[in-house]
Design a protein around this nucleic acid. Structure first.
Lengths: 192, 192
DNA sequence: TTTTTTTGATTGAACGGTCAGTCAAATATA
DNA sequence: TATATTTGACTGACCGTTCAATCAAAAAAA
């Protein structure tokens, strides 16, 4: 004899969990993992500190859940049940969509890039991250193979690194970065 | 008279200061600024916690000194009293030297890349960092202008971002990264 | 040579503050 | 009333930082 139906509780829990995750993502991205306290997250989300521990086991569990969720979205973007092959036009489209993805979720991407160099936090998620990075490098390698490059793997690594570098600069300073001009030049270079 | 000459004391201080800075750089790069405690630094350096405060005012002062020192080296590398112009051959040479620089000081570069996304730590050094990044972008813009590119600034930003991206991947996983093949391809693309 | 004095480097216990995490009690609803 | 959510004071560990006391080495004195 629950006071609320199971469905009602589930909705409450889902909503609160998302609220906490969104607020925490923003703070982790802006202030870093160690610079963000549980109290700050709770305050900004308008809940108590204790409640957070009703939804997440620990601070580690919280950031791990946030990053895994974002990586799942990224995985979906990279490999949405496709044939694995990529034409020049598809690459144009993918580049366009990737930067839209970034623009729409700047906080996650800030966190994503900070991960690369932060060993202790990286350790929490490195398996899944490597899986995804590997997937996108091999997709690019296949693309450059199909275009008869001399060294498709090097080309793929350069292209992937370039996207990361541009993304990093874009996320670090999205106001001044001339993303449209850079995108145009990128497509001339690689998708024509 | 003094028990030791001024020169002797200076040498002792210089040596200890360098020891602390090297140990701290390594820890900051691996574990992050907030993940590194003063106790850890002292222990690894084989000194007491208190001694560190004889050489540095605070933890902030310590990392600021370390980063400024590295940025000065980078500045020296970018602009070693040169005419400002860059030929294709000089760019080839510069790329080569840049990756040597990275290989020789992986810890500093790890810290450098992590800076981009770490707002609170970035704030301690952002003025000097922007000065140097601006310098290298305008040098590249001049290079692409001299080669009659359609959009030299976009080209410079892409190239700069690419170097950062490649550097980031190289630093994150220097063992498996095929740096020589990537360098070769980079030179074909931009310096021929 | 041996002893005393002088110096700044060096130590580590101690301090105030902050953190992640806990838990007993209050609240809200069918 | 029964039950799951929610609260925030509380805890103990650990943080950066301080400082009175100690140490080691060299100059000066014996």
């Amino acid at each position: 004899m629950s006071p609320r139906t199971e469905k009602q509780f589930e909705n409450i829990r889902e909503e609160k969990k998302n609220l906490i995750m969104n607020v925490a993502l923003e703070l982790f991205a802006d202030e870093g993992f160690y610079g963000t306290t549980i109290s700050k997250i709770a305050k900004k989300a308008g809940i108590s500190k204790g409640l957070l521990y009703n939804y997440f086991e620990s601070k580690d569990d919280l950031i791990r859940t946030i990053i895994f969720s974002g990586l799942d979205d990224l995985d979906e973007f990279i490999d949405p049940d496709r044939d694995g092959l990529l034409t020049g036009e598809e690459l144009t489209f993918a580049i366009d969509k990737l930067f839209d993805l970034m623009k729409g979720d700047i906080h996650f991407w800030k966190l994503y890039f900070s991960l690369f160099m932060q060993t202790p936090v990286l350790r929490l998620v490195e398996g899944r991250l490597q899986e995804i990075v590997g997937k996108y490098i091999s997709m690019l390698t296949a693309y450059f193979e199909s275009r008869n490059c001399d060294d498709p793997e090097a080309e793929a690594l350069i292209f992937g690194a370039m996207l990361d570098g541009i993304g990093m600069h874009f996320i670090a300073n999205s106001v001044n970065f001339p993303i449209e001009r850079v995108k145009k030049r990128l497509m001339e270079l690689y998708a024509k």
